[in-house]
């Protein structure tokens, strides 16, 4: 068992990028190997953090929605938790929250500067948590 799969994937990506791709004589295959290498590198970064970042997103989404004027959808969402810690289940709750925050943003962006800025700040933090180093 490899204890840190994310790191192992990164090592495999480096192998593809710096050993396999340069030795490929066909330029199309070399470009393909390079792209696959970069994608495996991306996967390596995502592997370790995927569930943790989404759980943090869900917490922050709930904090924003809790402070908004209540609607049945928002109230239901505050009580929602992922069915399991499998990525598929976490994504369901994460995506539901992102849909609600987008709707809230549309509601407040021209009428409530404080809420608008809080949402932009969340979107910025969200993007930083999910970004890939290249």
């Amino acid at each position: 068992m490899i204890p840190e799969p994310g790191r192992a994937l990164t090592d495999l990506a480096l192998r593809l990028l710096f050993n396999v791709a340069p030795q490929t004589t066909n330029t199309f295959a070399a470009a393909d190997a390079g792209l696959v290498g970069q994608l495996v590198m991306t996967l390596g970064q995502e592997f370790e953090r995927a569930v943790a970042t989404r759980m943090q997103d869900i917490d922050e989404l709930k904090a924003l929605l809790k402070d908004a004027s209540p609607t049945p959808e928002r109230t239901r969402y505050l009580a929602q938790i992922p069915a399991s810690l499998h990525l598929k289940d976490v994504n369901v709750v994460h995506d539901a929250g992102m849909r609600l925050i987008s709707a809230l943003h549309a509601e407040v962006e021209t009428t409530n500067d404080v809420s608008n800025r809080r949402i932009w700040s969340f979107l910025r933090a969200h993007s930083e948590r999910h970004k890939f180093e290249s």
């Binding site: 992102m98 943003h105 549309a106 962006e109 949402i119 979107l123 993007s127």
Partner: peptide, 15 residues
């Protein structure tokens, strides 16, 4: 997946 940044950008561009 939901795209709140794209949604905000599209609303801004429409306005």
């Amino acid at each position: 997946h939901p795209q709140p940044v794209a949604d905000a950008a599209i609303r801004f561009l429409r306005r």
